[in-house]
């Protein structure tokens, strides 16, 4: 059974509609006042608003999945704590020189670790991830604006960070298949390339 093709006019209309939506001005900004910790949603969106943070968080999950137990659950357990400690330092105004370079380096190093399937003792893995978590957390903490509900804002922030790790772990579980291993390593390469771009931007 073959389907009859859509009429040309209908296809043109659908294409025009799609193009029209793409051209719509995207910044509605109807509810959340920019730069304020309004609540859960603005906190949730904060970690996912920067690609440099996203690739590092996902890479942590992917590396943990590659390493298997216990790293696969120790890293998501410890990283938010270390990152929150960095956020605490940022909030109270303790300076951390070179934070942007550290964040960019996290993409390079974590991406390279995933790409090369680098295996190391758990303490070393946790230390590497912890140091980078400190940089990420400090940047977030220093940028956190005053607002109406810091508790809900922080809850959204922590939850988004944890879910990014979870995304990385789920992607990392592909390594059970041969082709999946290649996909993950390619993902690590992409993270490393992204980290190099951010590093270039940070030092120039």
């Amino acid at each position: 059974m073959t389907r009859a093709p859509l009429p040309v006019a209908l296809r043109c209309a659908i294409a025009a509609l799609v193009l029209g939506f793409l051209l719509l001005p995207g910044a509605a900004q109807a509810h959340i006042v920019k730069g304020e910790a309004i609540g859960f949603v603005s906190g949730f969106l904060h970690p996912v608003s920067g690609l440099d943070h996203i690739i590092a968080m996902v890479a942590v999950g992917m590396w943990g999945a590659q390493l298997g137990r216990p790293a696969i659950w120790v890293l998501p357990l410890t990283f938010p704590l270390v990152m929150a400690f960095g956020g605490f330092l940022g909030l109270i105004g303790v300076p951390l020189p070179g934070a942007e370079i550290g964040i960019a380096l996290s993409g390079v190093v974590l991406g390279a670790a995933v790409l090369s399937q680098f295996r190391a003792p758990l303490w070393l893995v946790a230390t590497i991830v912890g140091i980078f978590g400190l940089f990420h957390g400090h940047a977030h903490g220093a940028e956190m604006p005053p607002g109406h509900n810091p508790l809900l804002y922080s809850a959204g922030f922590v939850l988004a960070t944890g879910l990014l790790h979870l995304c990385g772990i789920v992607i990392g579980l592909l390594h059970r298949w041969r082709w999946g291993g290649y996909v993950i390593r390619a993902g690590g390469g992409a993270v490393m390339a992204g980290g190099l771009i951010f590093l270039w931007q940070a030092v120039t």
Partner: peptide, 16 residues
């Protein structure tokens, strides 16, 4: 651990 992280951030908010 996420909850403890949330508490650390709250401590920072209170400090600031």
């Amino acid at each position: 651990s996420w909850l403890a992280a949330l508490g650390l951030l709250l401590a920072g908010w209170v400090w600031r």
